[in-house]
């Protein structure tokens, strides 16, 4: 059932490019999503009133099944098939988790700490960059982890609208009834997701000093 010969023949032509394309898609999407979520999250933590509508909209986006969102975006004039559309979808799936964790991270900073910083004469901007964001970092990284794993998974489906990546191997494998392609694509996507999960989990733990002392 599994054709090792195909794997060794196509590793540089097809498998590696698909893997790299997948990593690229996922990385770019998380990076863009983070650039959008950070300012929104900071804003929301200051103006609480906008939190419910923000979570409502991003939650709505999050619950739309990916194939449906891809199909809807493709039909938008000017978008069509291709990796840009895929990236837009992937970004929109990450917003909920990322914004929620940015807010939760800033919320987790004790009021006394903020007060002490203010008492030492830090400006609001300095408090944000030197106190709040560093302390919120583990929670934000936790959000990045969940978003990354989700995106790596959904990116496979993006291949259906010509986004490239490991999904390409899966879809062509199914349509040509060639299991080896399917298995290679699925296994690599799984490994990538699990690896990203464990790596970011390690980063998250490293950023939590209290977890480190417990282990010591």
């Amino acid at each position: 059932m599994f054709d090792w010969g195909w794997v060794s023949n196509n590793i540089t032509d097809e498998i590696l490019p698909a893997l790299i394309g997948h990593i690229y898609l996922s990385f770019v999407s998380v990076a863009i999503a983070l650039l959008i979520s950070l300012p929104i999250g900071i804003l929301v933590s200051r103006y609480r009133k906008v939190y419910p509508p923000v979570t409502f909209i991003t939650g709505l986006l999050f619950s739309i099944p990916s194939l449906a969102l891809f199909a809807l975006l493709v039909s938008v004039p000017g978008l069509g098939l291709g990796s840009t559309t895929v990236i837009i979808a992937l970004v929109s799936y990450s917003l909920l988790v990322l914004i929620r964790n940015v807010v939760a991270g800033i919320d987790s900073v004790p009021e006394e700490t903020r007060d002490a910083a203010r008492g030492m004469g830090l400006t609001n901007r300095q408090i944000l960059f030197r106190v709040e964001l560093p302390l919120a970092l583990p929670v934000i990284v936790a959000g990045i982890r969940i978003a990354t794993v989700t995106i790596i998974g959904i990116a496979t489906i993006g291949a259906y609208i010509s986004g490239g990546g490991l999904g390409e191997l899966i879809f062509t494998g199914i349509s040509r009834n060639f299991p080896t392609r399917v298995i290679v694509g699925a296994v690599l996507a799984t490994l990538l997701a699990v690896l990203a999960d464990l790596t970011l989990l390690a980063v998250e733990r490293y950023l939590r000093p209290w977890a480190r002392t417990r282990r010591a």
Partner: peptide
């Protein structure tokens, strides 16, 4: 189960097919 959640849904469907 947490690791299981990381497995992409398309990957699971695709792996069931062979």
């Amino acid at each position: 189960a947490n690791t299981g959640r990381a497995v992409p849904s398309l990957a699971i469907l695709a792996l069931v097919f062979p």
